[in-house]
Design a protein around this nucleic acid. Sequence first.
DNA 1: CGAAGAATAGAATATCCATTCCATAATTCC
DNA 2: GGAATTATGGAATGGATATTCTATTCTTCG
Lengths: 285, 285
Amino acid sequence: MAETESSTVIPQDFDGLKTIILERKAHLPKRLRQVAAYALDNPDEIAFGTAASIATSAEVQPSTLVRFAQHFGFEGFSSLQQIFRARLRERTPGYDERLRALSGNDHSKLESGSIFNGFVAAAHRSLDNIATSVDPEAFERAVNILAGAETIYLVAKRRSYPISGYMAYAFGKLKVKYQMVGTAAGVDDDILAMAGPKDAAFAVSFSPYASESVNQAKLLASRKVPVVSLTDSAFSPLAESSKVWFELVEADHAGFRSLSASMAFAMALTVAVAEKRRRNAPERE
Amino acid sequence: MAETESSTVIPQDFDGLKTIILERKAHLPKRLRQVAAYALDNPDEIAFGTAASIATSAEVQPSTLVRFAQHFGFEGFSSLQQIFRARLRERTPGYDERLRALSGNDHSKLESGSIFNGFVAAAHRSLDNIATSVDPEAFERAVNILAGAETIYLVAKRRSYPISGYMAYAFGKLKVKYQMVGTAAGVDDDILAMAGPKDAAFAVSFSPYASESVNQAKLLASRKVPVVSLTDSAFSPLAESSKVWFELVEADHAGFRSLSASMAFAMALTVAVAEKRRRNAPERE
DNA sequence: CGAAGAATAGAATATCCATTCCATAATTCC
DNA sequence: GGAATTATGGAATGGATATTCTATTCTTCG
């Protein structure tokens, strides 16, 4: 019986697969090497072709394709093919192309066009930033804190409000218990009074910081509620009340800061929390 | 005998197909229109799925897909599918760098990392789309309509709510008179009753369309209030009530659609409207 | 209102597909 | 050099696929 899985894991994306193929290529049997070469040279063919058509074109037997896939830990050829298809789905164009698309469109010719282009470009810049400015381990810690919470309190005002607004919508869909803070004036303190160490909070505030949000975060921290926060400066008053905090500087156009990076961050956090809960929770049925 | 080929030619590429579908959209039978909408909104699904899986997801019978394909002159579903696959094949190369940049960061090593990367990538993709999918002249027209309005009514529910939420914040800062619709239940109709031809409305709704938003847009249109709308399909029920409408398909990760493009669009629209007003208004001091 | 026609749903079918299996060939290792 | 192991080719198979066909429902138009 051949050990297909042995020590290594099954690659989940194209890059991972490519790496492993290149690693093992040297000591691969003849026909399998042939397939390896063909696959890396003609990824599109693998994505769309059938086992029979690919086999013909790569001058091997269909069964060789199956064996190839199994050699790398996949169940069969079909599951290997998924990787190649996902690659096409998620393919992103390069940066210069992106810029060309922007300046090449007709927008620049019209009055409002430069405003439009400006905001799209700002959003792109923000997103480019986010990958380097968010520490993966901090993200992981934040996910753990929120996933372990009974109720998640969402603190945000003004410009940050749409972000927690989205999270509220998504948490609702995902059946995660949450509570918005800052909707109607006055009742906030009553809501916060119910928060305890078993819960957690997520606060968003960018400069100029809404003093209400800062105070509410402080209050929560003093009541031993772990706070995760998203802000735009290391000196943010939110930081001191937070167990984990993220600094996220949005690019701006004409003085209006983008929200794209914060939104992407919020979505990722929301889904990651729900995903973690799903995994931790025992099956119910 | 059905004349499938009749006068028109069979589309050879995706753009041609899209054009023809949009042309005939109006006088297409119910189920076929349903397929048309699904196909243009989820081209990747058509490219990769099987007739059965697509049929399920579009909520039609597999045979409907075949009829749809034949209706546009193709031999069967499979040959139609080729068009959708070619679209992916011919997408400009240069894919490598961006993907490597993302998967090369430390995020990919951690559990939640791929979620994070996924959302950033989806946001990027969305923004890439926006440049080509928004018609500059339509944008200009939309700006004119909204800039000329006395009060701007913002209609949005659920997932779209954060977008109008941001616009409300920004309009407030920019001293543009606006009115949110859809906050508390019940009072909406009273608010809408005040809208007249001198005003304008901006409605946002993505599928599955909130019927409330659709009805409110209809109501506004019937009261001669010009409506500008943002939606994700050429078949959106919002389109018919709108003077100007924009189709904006957001990329998604793990089924959660990005909001980046819509946000960038909303910001651009908001600022462009304010800018136009500033120019038109006579100096006050 | 009622008939003629088109559109649809759903089962039936013939085709094609990935996979498995096994006999044979090629390597490897002693 | 010969036995043990691994790789390969090619046919067999069972499952899934796109497509066709027909009874039924929905439209259209007189």
